[in-house]
Design a protein around this nucleic acid. Structure first.
Length: 439
RNA sequence: GGGGGCGUGGUGUAGUGGUCAAACAUGCGGCCCUGUCAAGGCCGAGACCGCGGGUUCAACUCCCGUCGCUCCCGCCA
């Protein structure tokens, strides 16, 4: 017999059905048993008159909530039933996976345990529909991103995650044993996607894991996360990257809205909005003016940079003034940017770079890259790097590399912004942090 | 790495020097209940109050250390 999904039961009134799901509630009375079964599409009540099948009733009495069940019965209409006005008259039941009692916690209880404890029992926490929805949204979001890229002739890359030499900055890399030598986990596909530019791919993207050995204890950091990276060739400057990016992002958000708008409202209590294009832009210098006008005081050591408080303040300002959740902050000082960001011709202290803030949270860093070998090498030296460790990278620019730029985006951070999630641990399937390697 | 906060039955909380051999809710077990539906009623089990040391006649409560969690900052996506 074929399985019927709970949402389709209305069309099967009077028929025998097989449904499969988890026992959410068992009300075991003297003469009647009521089971509420949950599958990914909804809840339904299942009813058994005990005297009609004492053996089955006995079996049901031993069930723990959250057991995985296959249920056979007849769908009947019953106005008395508050759960959709229908119920299933139970005929047979197979226990596929019994749940021990008590559960570590009640996923559907009125109060939930601390997040850290729920992380220990992540699969139970994920049974809540609102958590399932987060990853349905993520799936649609990535689908939208891919669709837009493919429409624009991008090639998908899968770059290695093990590296022989530290690339951008040694401090934040995880060292791993690699036979008789040391290797490093990639903290960005940066160099590899630029290599694709040198290879003449013109447009590439990658969605893959990146690793950061930062001992960060915040609601928005992870030691391993999914990076969304792209790089495009033959641009005039970083604004070409921003133009592409805002349209790409709006397209992907629209895909999410088309598919999940109602559920996001009901399960997450948030109204999602598709940002209007173009996103507001402000240079770093303008951002400082705005902060000054808001009386936001940056710590003096943050010269030329923003701190999280400043980012939140700018997010609020943009929301109020332009009614947009996003803002590009451009033209960051070279002092706070990596050596490979291209600098302005008329002002070499500033880079052709940008951050994208979403609701005041940094979700992206991007730039036009320096593709001229001599300039790039000079900038590396100026930053205090030595050339031999990055010579393989520098070589990409020796035999005809086109002008190019791109960005890296944190997938879970974008989900936080999209769904108004307060903590990145909710926006990722399994969180990894300095003290969290399990499950 | 720096700073703040927290750590009490399975879970969420209350209790902040003696009245606590620790309370409430929920969950769990048992019994009762002609259809329940956030079901309800009764009974029961379950915590040496994170760990170690100290102060005190007396510590869940104060102090020190330690571990864990959490938030903010640094770092970044």
């Amino acid at each position: 017999m074929e399985r019927t999904l709970i949402k389709d039961l209305m069309g099967k009134i009077g028929q025998q059905v097989k449904i499969q799901g988890w026992l959410q509630i068992l009300r075991d009375q003297k003469s009647m048993q009521f089971l509420v079964l949950r599958d990914r599409t909804g809840l339904v009540q299942i009813t058994l008159w005990k005297k009609g099948n004492p053996e089955l009733a006995e079996k049901i009495s031993t069930l723990g909530v959250e057991s995985a069940l296959t249920v056979f019965g007849k769908v009947v209409e019953n106005e008395v039933v508050k759960l959709g006005g229908i119920e299933i008259q139970l005929e047979n039941l197979k226990v596929e996976g019994n749940a021990e009692a008590p559960l570590p916690f009640e996923p559907f209880g009125e109060t939930l345990p601390d997040q850290d404890y729920r992380l220990d029992w992540r699969y139970l926490d994920l049974r809540r529909q609102r958590n399932r929805l987060i990853f349905e949204v993520q799936t649609t979001l990535e689908e939208g991103m891919r669709e837009y890229w493919i429409q624009h002739n991008f090639i998908e890359m899968h770059s290695p995650k093990t590296m022989g030499t530290p690339s951008e900055s040694g401090a934040e890399l995880f060292e791993i044993k690699y036979f008789d030598r040391t290797a490093y986990l990639a903290q960005s596909p940066q160099f590899y996607k630029q290599m694709a530019m040198a290879a003449g791919y013109e447009n590439v993207f990658e969605i893959g894991p990146v690793f950061r050995a930062d001992p960060s204890f915040t609601s928005r950091h992870m030691t391993e996360f999914t990076g969304v990276d792209m790089e495009m060739s033959w641009i005039d400057d970083h604004d070409d990257v921003m133009k592409f990016m805002e349209n790409w992002l709006a397209f992907s958000f629209q895909a999410v809205k088309d598919k999940h708008n109602e559920e996001i409202k009901t399960l997450l209590g948030t109204e999602m909005s598709v940002p209007s294009v173009p996103f507001p832009r402000m240079t770093m210098a303008e951002a400082y003016q705005v902060l000054k006008s808001m009386d936001y005081k940056l710590p003096p050591e943050k010269k030329g940079d923003l701190d999280p408080g400043a980012e939140r303040a700018l997010g609020n300002y943009i929301k109020e003034k332009y009614d947009n959740d996003f803002v590009f902050v451009t033209d960051w000082p070279a002092t706070v940017r990596p050596f490979y960001h291209m600098r302005h011709e008329d002002n070499p202290t500033l880079t052709k770079s940008f951050d994208l803030l979403g609701k005041g949270l940094e979700v992206t860093t991007g730039a036009q890259r320096e593709h001229r070998y001599d300039v790039l090498a000079a900038q590396a030296l100026e930053k205090g790097l030595t050339l031999p460790p990055i010579q393989n990278y520098l070589n990409y620019f020796r035999y005809g590399c086109p002008p190019h730029g791109g960005f890296g985006l944190g997938l879970s951070r974008l989900l936080m912004v999209l769904l108004d999630l307060p903590n990145i641990r909710e926006a990722v399937y399994l969180f990894r942090g300095p003290n969290r390697l399990e499950p």
